[in-house]
């Protein structure tokens, strides 16, 4: 067993998940490929969304992959950082908006 949970080299082995379950892996990777094709959103917009989500789920593989991918798609560093701020705003906001619940409860309990 390796000494760390994450190894950058594992990212390249992503496709190997097919070894234990080929049919589902194929479905997943075909779907994955289609999702990232240019559609109503451009490939670059999708890459930036993926970068933002990567930070939300704090997946080091995804951050690695979608940093390169965003650069390849021609995103600027500013756009990439703004995407991460979107993550941060939503994550922070998601906590903060629960403050309303806390306030509701406080108001209900208090005289």
């Amino acid at each position: 067993m390796q000494k760390t949970y994450y190894d950058p080299a594992d990212l390249k082995k992503f496709g190997d998940v097919a070894e234990f379950q080929p049919e589902l892996a194929k479905k997943f990777f075909d779907y994955y490929g289609d999702v990232f094709k240019e559609g109503a959103l451009t490939a670059r917009e999708k890459s930036l969304i993926a970068l933002a989500v990567s930070h939300a789920i704090q997946c080091p593989y995804c951050i690695d992959a979608y940093t390169s991918d965003s650069l390849e798609k021609g995103a600027t560093e500013q756009q990439m950082m703004e995407a991460v701020h979107v993550t941060t705003a939503i994550r922070g906001g998601a906590s903060l908006v629960h403050g309303v619940q806390m306030m509701n409860k406080v108001k209900k309990l208090s005289m």
């Binding site: 240019e38 451009t42 490939a43 670059r44 390169s68 650069l71 390849e72 798609k73 021609g74």
Partner: peptide, 10 residues
């Protein structure tokens, strides 16, 4: 840098 070019048409 050390990355590949994206889609030419895009």
């Amino acid at each position: 840098g050390a990355f590949l070019p994206g889609n030419q048409a895009e």
